[in-house]
């Protein structure tokens, strides 16, 4: 657990003993605790089905936690949901744009849901369309956009109400190299400007590149956390990838091994 420094006593996200059991009986989260400091770029890594999205859904009101607590800048995500959700911008894993809306309407309505007045919305929409190179797509319906454009709209929408905590759920799944680098650039800039970021991914390179701290989640539990080099060191391996493979019990897949095995034959 990261010690909270006196200068920032309130965590951007503080999750304590979070349990999520679905009506089917599946326990997606089995008592997760996690602290993310204000201003941090935090990575949550884990295989598919580990509980990453469930953790995000519980934090944003898309799922009801079974037990435990979630605080967003000190506000309880269940009881003080209004303040908690105001602080969060969510870019979900699956593209969930409304087909009927244009790019501008998508952003404008989102701002409205978050209580921004018309003037604030107009200014912010112009700003975001500009920085995401979407000005020409302003009046296009979202269903007409390419996959990459949709990703940008999703990110712009998450940033519309100037959230203090940006949650990115596998933002680069299935995007090409250019767009991936472009998205990295955007989020790094947002983080530099003071926004806390929680990123889930299963691209280890992405986490290594962007995140100051990383937690591994597997089977609904946080199994370890620290900086990328701390994690590698603790597992006695050379890379974050190998630490990850150790954790999910698939170390035979390590590229270090593969290289060593192949050498004699070459």
């Amino acid at each position: 657990m990261e010690p909270s420094s006196p200068s920032s006593p309130v965590h951007a996200l503080q999750i304590t003993d979070l349990v999520k059991r679905y009506p089917t009986g599946t326990e997606a989260l089995k008592g997760v605790s996690l602290d993310i400091a204000d201003g941090e770029f935090f990575g949550l890594l884990g295989p598919n089905g580990a509980g990453k999205s469930t953790l995000i859904h519980c934090s944003t009101g898309l799922a009801n936690p079974t037990s435990g607590s979630i605080r967003v800048f000190g506000n309880d995500a269940v009881n003080d949901y209004r303040e908690a959700r105001e602080a969060i911008g969510l870019a979900p894993q699956d593209i969930n744009l409304d087909w009927f809306l244009t790019v501008e309407e998508t952003l404008d309505l989102h701002g409205g849901y978050f209580g921004m007045n018309k003037k604030q919305r107009q200014e912010r929409v112009d700003e975001l369309l500009e920085s995401f190179s979407l000005v020409e797509k302003r009046n296009d319906r979202t269903r007409e956009l390419s996959g990459g454009m949709k990703r940008r709209v999703i990110l712009a929408r998450a940033l519309m109400h100037k959230p203090r905590l940006l949650i990115l759920d596998e933002p680069t799944a299935g995007v090409d190299v250019e767009l991936r680098l472009e998205l990295w650039h955007y989020v790094q800039q947002v983080n530099t400007e003071g926004t806390t970021i929680l990123l889930t991914t299963h691209y280890l390179e992405e986490a290594e590149q962007l995140c100051s701290r990383i937690a591994f989640i597997n089977d609904g539990q946080i199994v370890d956390q620290g900086s990328s080099s701390e994690l590698a060191e603790r597992f006695g391996v050379n890379s974050l990838e190998d630490a990850y493979l150790e954790l999910v019990g698939r170390k035979e897949l390590s590229r270090a091994h593969v290289g060593a095995d192949l050498e004699p034959e070459l």
């Binding site: 944003t60 009101g61 898309l62 949901y81 209004r82 303040e83 959700r85 105001e86 969060i88 969510l90 979900p92 699956d94 969930n96 744009l97 409304d98 087909w99 309505l109 989102h110 849901y113 978050f114 209580g115 929408r157």
Partner: peptide
């Protein structure tokens, strides 16, 4: 909206 999950934009907003 449930199908497209577009409704999540409203559901994760501070709207009561």
């Amino acid at each position: 909206q449930k199908f497209q999950r577009a409704i999540d934009d409203q559901l994760s907003s501070p709207a009561s």
